[in-house]
């Protein structure tokens, strides 16, 4: 009896969680979408909605497809992820291993950045980026985020967990500090790097508020901003709308299904001890 109630609850909740996505996908695959239906399988399945959705932005501005938004998001996501992991791990390494004056205060500063909400600083950030001439530039989308207190904290923790003897042995072999960091330490914290890649990539892939502030020409829109074009669409064009959403969402869900462990540890980073 208890089992039955449990399964019943689980299924009800699973429906609540999955139906929105499934409905979006089946509607996108359907041929006749002038009226909305609750259906499990698409009627008259075809891909023309996807082709229309992909090209829909060009109706607003010539020559722009969803491909452009994907490209912008990929570039932004790639550089934020790679550069911030590099800078954060460098700082984290020094803070974990070297003794120097004011070390604790300097580390505290990176903890303090986590207490400062992004929205509170967004106005001056915007003014600074505008001053630099970075509106509608990749610089504006990327540079403010190529370092994070959270990253410094996570990498420092990871380096602290590595026995000091390993480093001393490397030193005896005549490696420089940079060499130790790059060739000995970084390979040892691979799990943390993997976690941080997912964390940073997901964060920068989905960020919406900042691109909304610093881009206003369509050829610089990232995917989340591009999706808002579909929002104003007449709701009777369900097929087009749902196809646009499917194109944006399904690749990430597919990646998640392939790499579930990494995604979960990346998205719960800082909350759950490894």
């Amino acid at each position: 009896m208890k089992k039955f109630i449990w399964y019943f609850t689980l299924i009800i909740l699973a429906l609540f969680m999955l139906v929105p996505m499934l409905w979006t996908i089946t509607t996108a695959l359907s041929h006749d979408t002038s009226t909305v239906k609750i259906q499990l399988l698409p009627n008259n399945p075809g891909l023309e909605n996807f082709i229309n959705a992909w090209n829909y932005p060009s109706q607003i501005e010539k020559g722009i497809t969803m491909g452009r938004f994907f490209f912008n998001s990929l570039v932004t996501c790639f550089f934020i992820t790679v550069l911030s992991i590099l800078t954060d791990s460098m700082a984290g390494y020094i803070l974990a291993r070297k003794k120097f004056r004011y070390r604790e205060s300097i580390f505290f500063l990176s903890i303090a950045t986590m207490m400062i909400p992004f929205y509170v600083t967004s106005i001056p950030m915007f003014l600074i980026v505008r001053e630099f001439g970075w509106i509608n530039k990749f610089y504006g989308l990327i540079v403010p985020f190529i370092g994070s207190g959270f990253g410094v904290y996570m990498f420092r923790q990871a380096f602290l967990a590595i026995p000091i003897q390993i480093e001393e042995a490397a030193k005896l072999d005549g490696l420089s500090d940079l060499g130790i960091y790059l060739r000995v330490m970084l390979p040892l914290i691979r799990p943390t790097i993997a976690t941080m890649i997912i964390f940073k990539a997901m964060w920068s892939w989905n960020i919406f508020y900042w691109p909304l502030l610093v881009t206003n020409s369509m050829d610089m829109y990232t995917l989340p901003l591009g999706l808002t074009l579909f929002k104003g669409l007449n709701v009777t064009r369900w097929g087009l709308l749902t196809a646009g959403l499917t194109i944006a969402v399904v690749p990430i869900i597919a990646l998640f299904l392939i790499m579930q462990r990494q995604f979960i540890s990346g998205l719960t980073a800082g909350a759950v001890k490894e």
């Binding site: 911030s84 800078t87 460098m90 106005i123 403010p144 370092g147």
Partner: peptide
Amino acid sequence: PSYSIFFVFIFFPL
């Protein structure tokens, strides 16, 4: 590298 980002884009804006 990371701390200059903190100063320019977090502490100074604050």
